[in-house]
Simulated assay, not measured.
Amino acid sequence: MIELVIAERCTSCDACVEVCPTNVLDRTLEGSPAISRQQDCQTCFMCELYCPADAIYVAPDCENHTPVDKDAILAAGLLGEFRRNHGWDEWAGDPRYPNEHWRMESVFLRARDVAIGEAGTKRAGEI
Rank of each mutant, 00 (worst) to 15 (best):
Glu30Arg: 14
Trp102Gly: 02
Gly117Val: 00
Ala34His: 12
Ile116Tyr: 05
Arg123Ala: 02
Trp91His: 06
Pro95Gln: 03
Leu109Gln: 08
Gln39Ser: 15
Glu126Trp: 04
Glu81Arg: 14
Gly77Asn: 10
Gly93Phe: 02
Phe108His: 13
Asn99Tyr: 06
Asp40Pro: 05
Asp113His: 04
His86Gly: 01
Ser36Tyr: 05
Ala53Thr: 12
Arg96Gly: 03
Ala119Phe: 00
Leu78Met: 13
Ala75Leu: 11
Val5Tyr: 05
Arg123Trp: 01
Arg27Val: 14
Leu78Cys: 04
Cys10Met: 04
Leu29His: 07
Glu100Gln: 08
Pro95Leu: 03
Gly125Thr: 01
Glu90Ile: 01
Arg110Phe: 04
Glu126Ile: 03
Leu25Arg: 06
Cys62Gln: 13
Val58Leu: 07
Thr11Glu: 03
His65Thr: 13
Gln38Glu: 15
Gln39Cys: 06
Thr28Glu: 11
Gln39Lys: 15
Gly120Arg: 07
Leu25Glu: 09
Cys51Ile: 08
Arg83Leu: 02
Val58Asn: 13
Gly120Val: 04
Gly117Lys: 05
Val19Asp: 01
Ala76Asp: 15
Tyr97Glu: 02
Asn23Tyr: 13
Val107Glu: 05
Lys122Ser: 02
Leu25Gln: 07
Arg9Tyr: 04
Pro21Asp: 06
Gly31Val: 10
Ile56Ala: 10
Glu18Ile: 10
Asn23Cys: 06
Met1Phe: 02
Glu100Ile: 01
Cys51Tyr: 08
Glu105Asn: 07
Ile127Tyr: 02
Glu90Val: 01
Ala53Lys: 12
Pro60Asn: 14
Phe45Gln: 12
Ala92Leu: 04
Thr11Ile: 10
Cys13Glu: 01
Ala111Trp: 00
Glu126Lys: 12
Ala75Val: 08
Leu4His: 00
Leu74Ile: 15
Gly120Gln: 07
